[in-house]
């Protein structure tokens, strides 16, 4: 436990040690008269700045030292993580988890892993190497409010607009337009949320404790396997039988399962409810299956069109042929009528 803590704290310590120098410099500048540092120790670059000139904005004020919180649970880091997650991951299923104990989480993750191991690796593009997604699928507890902010950022924040605006702060390296910047904050705060946007749809889900099942590609087979464990539907996504997987009927897991509720999903930026998620899980043969269905539909349409188009010419041909026959018969009749006359 202490080892984990110390490992978590290491980046902070490193950061503190890195920032020790500018902090002292800023302090020396801020409290000019009370500074205990001697003239030769204070940094000459900051000393030479005349009073009244605004400080460069990337200076760390002495009154606001860097956080000592473990780096991976800081709010800023969570927002960074979640925005990048939302931008890169096409498929996230949201579960409400109500007071699962650690043992139950372990059991749920174990069963999920077991179910996903049976799924065949997907082929990302025709001719490419198959990728085994199973070890990449994660069931993660998410911080709801931070996720809410990240969802807003992903949908409504446009860094290019912010970079073009004059109010955005700039450094020598360019405008500050990252997700944690003041520009992002202002833009997202002032946005009026359109009622048909994905955020407006998903916003009511962001209540209470949330966990996300993160699948790094849209793979209906993986969704189906996960649903059969985490939200089984008899008939469609049946739970594994007692004989096949006795661990599934372990009371710890069943207790944990009762506390997990699938509430929705975000698939390729669109918001799906439980039925929608089940529909995605039920697509036979994955994306290839969908493509095959589409091709079949298009082929059917093509056949229909050709037969309709052909139909017109065919009936014309039939009519003409009929007329031809008629004319020939008439001509025969006439020649028959003429023959006795000439004879």
């Amino acid at each position: 436990m202490t080892r984990i803590l110390s490992r978590a704290a290491r980046p902070c310590l490193r950061r503190l040690s890195l920032e020790a120098t500018p902090v002292r410099g800023a302090f020396a500048l801020g409290s000019h008269n009370f500074s205990t540092s001697e003239a030769q120790h204070a940094s000459p670059g900051l000393r030479s700045v005349p009073e009244g000139v605004p400080l460069p904005i990337d200076v760390v004020p002495a009154t606001k030292p860097p956080s000592a919180r473990p780096i991976d649970t800081r709010k800023s880091q969570l927002i960074r993580t979640y925005t990048s997650l939302l931008r890169t991951t096409p498929l996230i299923l949201f579960f409400q988890h109500s007071n699962l104990t650690a043992v139950e989480w372990a059991a749920v993750r174990r069963e999920l892993k077991k179910a996903l191991e049976g799924v065949a690796p997907i082929v990302p593009a025709p001719g490419a190497e198959p990728v085994d997604l199973s070890p990449l699928v994660q069931l993660q507890v998410l911080r709801t409010n931070m996720l809410n902010v990240a969802l807003k950022l992903v949908e409504f924040y446009n860094p290019e607009v912010a970079a073009a605006s004059k109010a955005t702060k700039r450094t020598t390296k360019g405008p500050i337009v990252h997700d944690l910047s003041e520009a992002a904050y202002e833009q997202v705060k002032n946005v009026e949320i359109p009622p048909n946007s994905a955020y407006a749809q998903i916003e009511p889900l962001m209540v209470g404790p949330l966990a996300g099942l993160i699948i790094p590609a849209v793979s209906p087979a993986h969704v189906a396997a996960a649903l059969s464990v985490l939200a089984p539907v008899p008939g469609k996504f049946p739970a594994p039988s007692r004989k096949k997987n006795p661990g599934y009927y372990d009371p710890t897991f069943q207790n944990g399962l009762a506390k997990l509720v699938l509430i929705g999903g975000r698939i390729e930026g669109k918001v799906f409810d439980q039925a929608g998620v089940q529909w995605v899980g039920g697509i036979e043969g994955g994306l290839d299956g969908l493509r095959a269905q589409l091709v079949a539909i298009l082929q059917g349409a093509g056949l229909g069109i050709t037969s309709t188009l052909e139909g017109g010419s065919r009936s014309l041909w039939l009519a003409l042929e009929g007329r031809k026959g008629q004319l020939e018969e008439e001509a025969k009749g006439e020649s028959k009528g003429e023959e006795p006359a000439s004879a």
């Binding site: 409400q96 109500s98 007071n99 699962l100 104990t101 139950e104 749809q201 009511p204 889900l205 209540v207 209470g208 404790p209 207790n255 009762a258 506390k259 509720v261 509430i263 929705g264 409810d273």
Partner: peptide, 30 residues
């Protein structure tokens, strides 16, 4: 209905139940 705002009290009520509530003889249907 998780997609309506009025789901909030019901969902939060479920989170107020302690982890061992089912073992203690309460049945919970969601």
């Amino acid at each position: 209905n998780p997609f309506s705002t009025c789901a909030k009290p019901a969902r939060l009520f479920l989170t107020f139940l302690p982890p061992n509530v089912r073992a203690n003889g309460t049945t919970v249907h969601t």
